[in-house]
Design a protein around this nucleic acid. Structure first.
Lengths: 212, 212
DNA sequence: GTCTATAAAAGGATAGAC
DNA sequence: GTCTATCCTTTTATAGAC
């Protein structure tokens, strides 16, 4: 029963910033687990180890708290890609790295849960959905398109429409694996299955844009 | 103020089957528009033009009604594909037809809304999500895989893994268009944009499986 | 800033009349 | 089978003490 407990639970007497972080962490967990509608402010307060009134003191209302846990959490997809630009590596190896890290991130339980709640609430919070798309999928497509355009300039590949090609690559990569996990159908894919999907997507994009 | 009104609204005095249909139609509208949690039985009853008790008399509980409007509504994707099997048409033309009808169906507001609620509630109703996947996406992949395997046998294409190739084709087809509409980001795509996405996906799959 | 206690409203489900 | 009226629980949000 000490006076200081720095974990996510129990923020009694800690500084306000820590309390705020504890609330955000708890809200993330509860919202992603239950969805916006089923998540109660009581459950969030309890998970954060504070009273409900404290939650309201920090965030004002339920929708503001929801916005806070979605915003600013831009999926840090592919810090890889900018580095790939202008690199001299084999395109196949680079695309494989990009594909694997993209798919690994997408198949993470947290990413899937975040995707589910944004999809579920996109009509109620259209700006949140737009921000999510802008900071996540759109950024990934833009970055990969830049890389593909670079390969085209360097003569390694023939890519007439880089943005479309990038969207197709990511789409082919998601294929059925992402859909199954998003819907929670069946067991998680094995590492081998993921690797096979990446390899196939890379083969396909290379074949489609092979230089004549 | 007549005694018979056969439209979706007002089922007073009509036969039970019509009442049931009116409730199903209203429930579909309300659930797809608001999501499971935000949809109230009051709103459904009102939209159907009956009392709440009548809704309960027919379906017993909210979750049962939700199941009824999702189940049995298997997306009738691609009645095309079975017919394509063994056909002598140009594979490019057939794949273009398949791709266009698939994408057109997926971009329908009703399909998008149904997808959203199933994704949103897949943790609460896992069997419903499994049925949705089985009757929709999985069936489409299976059918296209059969067609691709047939093309491989006939020597038109070289498809080593038909199921993976089919999933990739549909994934590439969805690309960014489906994601944007799912999240409600930006305006709907033009017919030209959809046609371009289909054409690009067809080009890609043909290039990837060109016979050596 | 944080807590306990409470207000105020909404929604799922049921009872009983016709 | 259908309707009106009601119960009971849950939930958001606020008041007031420390």
């Amino acid at each position: 029963m000490g006076t200081r407990q720095a974990t996510a639970k129990r923020a009694r007497g800690a500084d306000p910033a820590a309390t705020r972080e504890a609330i955000l962490a708890a809200a993330t967990q509860v919202f992603l687990e239950s969805g916006y509608g089923a998540a109660s402010m009581d459950a969030i307060a309890q998970a954060a180890g504070v009273s409900k009134q404290t939650v309201y003191a920090h965030f004002g209302a339920k929708d503001a708290l929801f916005g806070a846990i979605i915003h600013g959490r831009a999926d840090r997809i592919l810090a890889l890609i900018p580095g790939a630009l202008g690199a001299v590596r084999d395109p196949a190896a680079t695309l494989t790295d990009i594909g694997r890290s993209y798919l690994d991130l997408l198949l993470t339980p947290e990413t899937l849960a975040r995707f589910r709640v944004v999809v579920a609430e996109c009509m109620r919070f259209p700006e949140l959905a737009a921000a999510f798309h802008r900071e996540g999928p759109e950024r990934a497509v833009t970055a990969l398109a830049a890389y593909l355009a670079d390969l085209d300039r360097r003569g390694a590949l023939s890519v007439a429409e880089p943005a479309l090609a990038a969207a197709q690559f990511f789409g082919a990569l998601r294929g059925d694996l992402f859909l199954r996990r998003l819907l929670g159908v069946g067991p998680p894919p094995t590492a081998a299955a993921v690797a096979a999907a990446v390899a196939a997507a890379v083969r396909t994009v290379l074949a489609a844009h092979r230089r004549d």
